[in-house]
Each structure stands twice: as C-alpha cells, then as structure tokens.
Simulated assay, not measured.
Amino acid sequence: MTSVIDNGDVLLDVADGVAELRFDRPDSANGMTVGLLRAFYDALMACHRMPDLRALVISGNGRHFSGGGDVRDFASHGEGLPDHLREVTSWLQISVSAMIRLPAPVIVKVQGYAAGGGGFGLVCAADFVVAGESARFLPAATTVGMAPDGGTTVTLSRIVGIRQALRITLTNPRLTAKEALELGIVSEVVPDAELDSHTADLARTLAQGAPRALAATKRLLWDGVGRSVEEALPDEARTVSALSGTADAREGLAAVLERRAPLFTGR
C-alpha cells in the first residue's frame, strides 16, 4: 500500500486500484474543521488525478465516522461564526461535488455516528454506504439552530422521499443502522466485526469491474437526480452562514458543549 497523503487530519493510501481515505481526528469524533476539509478536498483531487483508480473508500479513524462540524471550533469564533462558516461550507461543498464527480465509485464506511453535513451529508453523497450494525445516523443541523448542508437538502429527499426527509431533518431522530437501511440511506448493514473486511471485499469487487462503464453509469445516475447537488450547494452555504449568526445557533452550540437541552428563542 502506498501512502499518498498524511497531513495529520486526513490519510490517503492506495493499493491495487483502491484508495482508502481516512479522517484522522478521532479525539473530536473526526469533527470537520477548515483544516480537515481542505485536506479532504486535496485528497479527493489526488484521487481525480489517478487514472488507474477503481474505487475509493472513505472512513474515519476511532469510534465514529464523523460527528459533523467541530462544535468546539465553531463556538470559539463567537460573533465571527458566519464568516467562518462561509469558509467551512465552501470547502465542504466542493468536496461533496468532487465525491460525486469522481469517476470511480465511492464507498463510505460507517462505524459509530455519522452526523451533520460532514458525516450524514457525506453518507448521502456516497455511491455505496456500508454500516456496522451499531452505527447511528443523525442530520443534527436544526438541533443547533442551523440548516442541513453537504448537499443533504437534495440528496436525502431523493433517497427517502420528501415526507421522510422532512421528518428526519426537522425532528432529528437517531436512526439505527437497520432503520437507515430500511430507508435506503445505507446500502448494507454488517456485524461490526465484519465492517472492515466486508467493505474491502466490496471495493475489490468494484475494482474488478469495467471502469469506464461504472464511471458512465455513476455519472448518468447522479445527473438524473434532477436539480444537481452543485446547484443546491451555494444556497445551502448562504443559509447555513446566515443562521450561524443567530442567537439560536449560539445557544445550540453552547447547549452541546454544556450537555444540556437548548432553549431556542427564534432570534
């Protein structure tokens, strides 16, 4: 296996036509920061430059795939959060676009939580999602006074339908792996102990396929979604940035850090 990127936040290794991209901030549940998202985008662009790439597996080191945005990092910006969120969402949106436009199939491997635009959003933007049976899925944005991003406002409704998408994003149930499978959010659920080996087997199977045929099929299916995710991303970014400047967003972040229920006021 050849190491391509190792910058402390993101690791990228390649072997036999399969790339493995791992988030490496396990102490923060692989929380998304500008640094991590920039490294994520760089890694995806490195994958785009690999003519022999046949499959990409995205995972997170530690207990969780990703808890979404790094709440502590967000809260530290105080009144400057809207400007900071504009940068965060910019890196997230071009990364989601790079995932979707990568010719090779993208597999997301989920253990623990996949939450927020950085976790749940990437799940919805993947071509395949393999989850351990103890995995949990949570959009989470409205719980901190913000709105979904990472393309979720388009991808989720296409996957589960508008009624379920509204239920999931407005009430934020912690979906079990089984529930996510029944809704179509994940492709497969396997025993936790078999997550790594099963995902590796799937990647090898894809790597043995006809690359041009797989790439063309992937492109046609994503283009057939209707409104492209790319068209939705700027609107999402503007909305998230604006909401992050509200008192409710600051209250939501504070409530997470203080481990209490938030008290939203509509301001």
Rank of each mutant, 00 (worst) to 15 (best):
T2R: 13
I5P: 13
N7L: 14
V14W: 00
G17C: 00
R22E: 13
R22L: 15
D24T: 11
P26N: 10
N30G: 13
N30P: 08
M32R: 07
L37G: 09
L53F: 02
L56I: 01
G60K: 04
G69I: 06
V71H: 02
F74Q: 07
A75V: 09
G80V: 08
L92V: 07
S97M: 04
P103V: 00
A104K: 00
P105V: 02
V108Y: 09
K109L: 10
Q111A: 15
F120D: 12
V129W: 01
A135H: 07
L138E: 05
A141L: 12
V144H: 10
V144K: 10
V144C: 09
M146I: 14
G151H: 07
G151L: 02
G161E: 05
A180T: 11
L183E: 14
V186L: 12
E188R: 15
V189T: 13
A193S: 13
A203M: 02
T205G: 05
L206E: 02
A213T: 00
L214Y: 02
R219T: 06
G224I: 02
V229D: 02
E231C: 07
E231T: 08
L233R: 00
D235R: 05
E236M: 10
S241E: 08
L243E: 14
L253D: 07
V256C: 05
R259V: 10
